[in-house]
Write a protein that binds this DNA or RNA. Structure first.
Lengths: 157, 157
DNA sequence: GTCAAATCGACAGGAACCTGTCAATCTACC
DNA sequence: GGTAGATTGACAGGTTCCTGTCGATTTGAC
C-alpha cells in the first residue's frame, strides 16, 4: 500500500465493502428466486418486462447492461416458458418480449419472498444507518459515473 | 411492487445502488489496471501474492473466492509472466505462487494509479458522507452475512 | 504404522457479464 | 425516393465467477 491518505483509505474501504456486499446480495437474490425456478439475473429481467412488453434492447438500456447479455438471459427465459416473443407493430425484426402466465406467476412468487426479505433486512438496520448508506453509495456512484465518463448529460453515445 | 414498507423500500434502493456502484467500480478497476497489462481480478490476486509466496488455495481463502476461480486467474498470470510457481517445502503438489520482477513492476504501477484515483474520489465525496457510506454498507453486509448463514462464528465450515 | 478425513491441483461444464462484427431494418435528411 | 446513419438481433469468442468430481497428498486419530 503506497501510503494512502486517510480519505483515499476510507474510499478504498468502501470499495472493498461494496464488492463483498454485492457478492452477498447476488447470493441472497439467487436464494430468493430459486424456489420459483429463477436466478437473480432472470428475475431482474422479468421485473422489467412486467412493466409491459418491450424489446430486448430496451430492457438492456433500462438495466444498464449490454444488449447481448440481456438477449442471452431472455432466450433462456423463453426456452423455459417464462416469456414469449410477440410481434412488434413498430419493428419487423425487433420483437417484443412479454410475460407468459407462468412467468407472471414466478415473478409474483419471487416478489413476495423479496418483500419479506427486504422488510426483515430493513428492520434490522436502523433507519438512520440505512438512509445514510443509500445516500453515501448514491453519491459515490454519481461521482464515479462522472469520473469514468465526463461530458455526458442524458444522451449515452 | 407488492406494497413494500418504507424500510423495505429504502433497503431495496440500497441494493440497486450497490449493484450499479459495483459495476462502475469493476469498470474503474479495469481502467486503472489496463495500462499495466492487468485486469481488476488479476490485480487483486497479484496484491495478495505480494504479501509473500502463498498457495493458490490460500489466496482463494483470503479473497473469499472459490479455489478454482483463483487457480484460473493465477494460471493466466503465470502464462503472462507476472507470477511463477515455486516449490513449496511443506507440500509436494501444492506449489507456492510468487511474483516475478515483471509482476512486481506491474503491481506497483497499478497501485500508483489506484492511489491517485482513490485520493481523487475520496476528496470529492466529503468525509462525512464517505464515512457514513462505509459504516452503512458494512452494517448491511454484516446483517446479510448473518441472514444468509446463521450459526457461524469464526470457523467457516 | 495405518487408515480416514481434509486439503490440494486438475478438469469439465455452466452462468452471467463483456466486446466485436455482421446483415437486416428503421429513421432522418436531402 | 434514395441514401447515410443508427438501431437491432444473431453469432463468435473471451473473462470471471460458480459447482461438482477426480486422484494425489498431507494431516490426524488410533
Amino acid at each position: 500500500m503506497p501510503s494512502l491518505t486517510k480519505k483515499a483509505e476510507t474510499f478504498t474501504a468502501l470499495v472493498l465493502e461494496v464488492f463483498q456486499l454485492n457478492g452477498l446480495l447476488l447470493q441472497a437474490g439467487d436464494r430468493l428466486s430459486a424456489p420459483a425456478g429463477l436466478t437473480s439475473a432472470r428475475w431482474q429481467v422479468l421485473g422489467v418486462i412486467d412493466h409491459g412488453p418491450v424489446t430486448v434492447a430496451a430492457v438492456a438500456r433500462t438495466m444498464g447492461l449490454a444488449r447481448q447479455s440481456v438477449q442471452q438471459t431472455t432466450d433462456a427465459l423463453a426456452s423455459d416458458g417464462f416469456v414469449e416473443y410477440v410481434d412488434n407493430p413498430n419493428h419487423q425484426r425487433a420483437k417484443c418480449v412479454s410475460l407468459t402466465a407462468a412467468g407472471r406467476r414466478a415473478l409474483r412468487k419471487v416478489e413476495q419472498a423479496h418483500a419479506a426479505w427486504a422488510e426483515r433486512m430493513g428492520a434490522s438496520l436502523g433507519p438512520g444507518v440505512l438512509a445514510a448508506a443509500v445516500e453515501g453509495v448514491r453519491e459515490a456512484r454519481l461521482r464515479l459515473e462522472k469520473d469514468l465518463n465526463p461530458e455526458e448529460g442524458s444522451h449515452e453515445e
